[in-house]
Design a protein around this nucleic acid. Structure first.
Lengths: 216, 216
DNA sequence: GCCAACAGAATCGTTGACAATCTTGCTTCG
DNA sequence: CGAAGCAAGATTGTCAACGATTCTGTTGGC
């Protein structure tokens, strides 16, 4: 499970609706462009419309849902061009994070990155694209985290949430993990060398490759 | 209330509450960390609490308001460190926009940028920091716009909204406009030369200087 | 046969009231 | 005199009902 969002017991109605709706969208349980009728969701989740409404407003602000006045909400679909534009933003922000992380990273954190790297190699060797995709996600998340750039991390998480569908399709493409693996290992290597410029360059190279792949 | 920017007549209650609250915060009518009691706001704006609540949820997602469960909302205060972190993100994203703009810009748009540049020179010469600050804001906004990067523009507008207070304080500091002017003219020059790398470098140099100034 | 007006259904927006929670100030006991 | 406990007040969270808007399918006229 790449993301947090555990509906802990003492949760409030709105929070529960928010986390469950978010998970449903991110796990692909809701088809893209599917209508999200407030009454249905309220009944499904056992909360009132007000809570669903609050959750939808928040999801709209996060770019996961599209709302039109008096017409309703639907799961937002991101076109390929939009996915490219989002990835370009990721390139700028993750580049920043990688550079910062290369300077700030601790030895234990370096060990964790190295471990992720070998796990990714194993996943590719074993031909397990789903595992690889999860490790991929985890690696990016860890690097962001290690940078200590709270603002950038927040923005990146918003952006990534919008890409779930595309990310998945990408990981399942034959040959893609092999290509991607090399770039990821280069990122790890640059951070291990504590070289901020090299780390930023490696991340940018990787995401440039992602953009090319997105465009088919 | 000197609030223009009409919440156009046919506007819905929630939209009205949102625009007015947003303006009030951005114009500094609400002291930082001021409590935002839903009932008070509802009465002040002549709408119901539900509309205020919806507006507050949206403003929280935009980073302008802080909400704590069962405790209420307040205007979010951004510390200096946070302002620096935000500006670092701006550096990454505006750098991207400037590079794209340098390639995509049209001749009329170039003329507009040049015009802004001369207006800024005049404002500095006449010693009008407020006018300069507005032109500054306009220049950055135009460059973003000309890049055509919708996603990046959206993120940047969110980030900028959080900086209003700091931006103001910066513009009024003696000597700052003179320093800033040179950097802005360099940005314009690089875009006129349609040189993406130079444009990105100029923006980054400018925002690095802003960070130094923020830190005092 | 085609288009415009119209009624009905579906859905969202708004309202006022009630419940849950937190804060604050007072009281009481050690 | 100080601290724990309690009660009142303030504020947010939740709810169910009402009103407004948009969509859809049908009917009537041309």
């Amino acid at each position: 499970m790449p993301n947090e969002a555990r509906p802990s017991s003492g949760e409030q109605a709105k929070q529960l609706a928010l986390t469950r709706l978010r998970q449903a969208i991110m796990h692909g349980e809701m088809a893209p462009a599917q209508r999200l009728v407030e009454n249905e969701l309220a009944e499904r989740f056992g909360v009132t419309r007000a809570s669903i409404r609050a959750a939808l407003i928040e999801l709209e602000a996060q770019g996961l849902v599209e709302r039109i006045r008096n017409r309703g909400s639907r799961v937002r679909v991101v076109s390929v061009e939009e996915a490219v534009a989002i990835t370009e933003c990721r390139m700028a922000l993750e580049g920043l994070c990688a550079a910062k992380a290369a300077v700030a990273v601790s030895d234990e954190q370096l060990a964790e990155l190295t471990g992720l790297g070998t796990a990714m190699q194993k996943a590719v060797a074993d031909g397990e694209p789903v595992t690889y995709s999860e490790l991929n996600h985890a690696l990016h998340a860890r690097i962001r985290e290690f940078s200590g750039q709270r603002t950038a991390v927040e923005l990146l998480e918003r952006l990534n949430a919008q890409l779930v569908r595309h990310r998945f399709q990408l990981a399942l493409r034959p040959g893609r993990p092999q290509q991607s693996l090399k770039e990821h290992l280069a990122m790890i290597e640059a951070i291990r060398a504590r070289d901020p410029q090299a780390a930023e360059a490696a991340v940018r190279a990787h995401l440039t490759s992602v953009i090319d792949a997105l465009r088919d």
